[in-house]
Design a protein around this nucleic acid. Structure first.
Lengths: 138, 138
DNA sequence: GTTCTAGTTTACGTAAACGTAAACTAGAAC
DNA sequence: GTTCTAGTTTACGTTTACGTAAACTAGAAC
């Protein structure tokens, strides 16, 4: 058991390009519970991982509360039959919602490809199209 | 040119499982501009597509303003050299951000798979693990 | 002619996720 | 010993994306 690395609040803020306010807010919302050293917060690797997961969730459009569900899956946690079952259910749900998001991304990507082609054609076809005002002037 | 289908506000609300308030809000924010018939709004297929795109963006965690950028790519729009170039730039940006989101999804999916295995093992291994309190009682 | 039903405008309210300012603490650097 | 620098608490403010209520309109059904 080596003493694993710790982080200050501003180190984490810098790494993830967020403000310290945001990190403290997540603590208020019980996502993080850093150790204290005197008055200061000391973050362990575990906190850093949690933070990363939260932010990843955010980028995918999960609310903090939705992410909370996901985070629960990472905790060793009390594990009787019943709890494990409901964790499995939650897991399936999240997997489903990820699949849907994946579809959304794929559709959007193919839309963007189409748009790209259109723009490319408009650029190369000469200006013999659309807006008659589209000459170099101005 | 066949007269393409039109929709009332509540038809669209039902189809996409949103409220009419939301649809009117999007109009206030200039995402939609349905035709009027007397006092009522009449939505064309075009509006329906826009709505779908907005909602897809939302599911992917794009703010309405971010989606606004994407929507601009679908409009025929004034197309002089300069405008086309900046559209291409915007397009690249959006493609990049989609790629990043795709990575996020993939990481989260593999995380979920790991979690699934852990839970499965905990379920099948008998209860000889972790929390010593995990017996059937209660 | 009134009573649904769906639609409309106006406007104040709200939850989530922070931003921002003020006032304080405490070690480090000079 | 004071002056950075980073950290802290407290608390009010702000933006986004709608919710919700009130008061009105207008065709359809009876």
């Amino acid at each position: 058991m080596s003493i694993s690395k710790t982080y200050t609040i501003s180190e984490l803020a810098r790494e993830f390009s967020i403000t310290t306010r945001t990190i403290r807010y997540y603590e208020d919302e019980a996502f993080l519970s850093p150790r204290r050293e005197g008055q200061q917060r000391i973050y362990a690797e575990k906190d850093r991982v949690l933070l990363k997961l939260i932010l990843r969730g955010k980028r995918l459009g999960f609310s903090l509360n939705e992410s909370k569900g996901i985070l629960a899956l990472y905790e060793p946690g009390g594990s009787n039959q019943h709890q494990l079952q409901s964790m499995l259910n939650l897991l399936r749900e999240k997997q489903e919602s990820l699949r849907r998001r994946l579809e959304d991304i794929e559709m959007m990507q193919s839309d963007l490809l189409e748009a790209e082609e259109r723009i490319f054609r408009a650029l190369t076809d000469g200006q013999a199209n659309g807006d008659p005002d589209s000459h170099e002037q101005n």
